[in-house]
Design a protein around this nucleic acid. Structure first.
Lengths: 95, 95
DNA sequence: TAAGAATATATCATTCTTGATCATCAGCTT
DNA sequence: AAGCTGATGATCAAGAATGATATATTCTTA
């Protein structure tokens, strides 16, 4: 699924024009990124939550030279799917 | 940020009615969940990607009894923020 | 706004991801 | 439709998440 698929869904199921659909999606994505960049968490019940958490990891690898590379700490974004969603995804293995 | 905040953004910046905003968001979230439940990956350039990956983890813990509990394998959803987004988030630590 | 529903937290050991970089592949804009 | 921009894969070691459960907290809906 890519952006275009979302536009199509909005055009078909939501009856929105392509222009509106694009405006919509971009607006939502932009506001979500801004929220996370402010350090806020995003919590959408039934779907999942995004949180900005500190990161300490300290080593990477230079493939060419096959040697370790120090990595500075910082923050990262973590997504956690909702409970119901998570359970359903987990069961995909059954198929 | 919660669902209501997204509705507000759509009402203000996108000039959509509350009803339309709700329909929109629910439609998008639903289609995204369905895609992932079909095993598809979702890739939104500039934001990030969601993928369904296999999981093997095998042990949990019962806090009351303080003993190990076996955990069945399955699949899980993984979110990976876009490059630019990831870098910006990482720098939040500087502040 | 208040009731109802969903999520965070803490716990431990095992499994898994992060992180830089180049080449390849794929999404997105014109 | 094609090119440009952006994402994935592979590598290794060490730090970090997962998973079940009950309670406290927060989101959502009627």
């Amino acid at each position: 699924m890519i952006k275009n698929d979302i536009f199509l869904v909005l055009e078909q199921k939501g009856n929105f024009s392509r222009t509106k659909a694009v405006l919509l999606v971009e607006t939502i994505l932009k506001s979500m990124k801004e929220a996370l960049l402010r350090g806020e968490k995003i919590e959408i019940r039934g779907f999942g939550s995004f949180r900005v958490v500190p990161k300490k990891s300290g080593y990477g690898r230079d493939i060419r030279r096959n040697k370790q590379i120090p990595i500075a700490g910082g923050k990262r974004v973590k997504f956690k799917p909702g409970q119901d969603f998570k359970v359903k995804i987990k069961k995909l293995s059954v198929e």
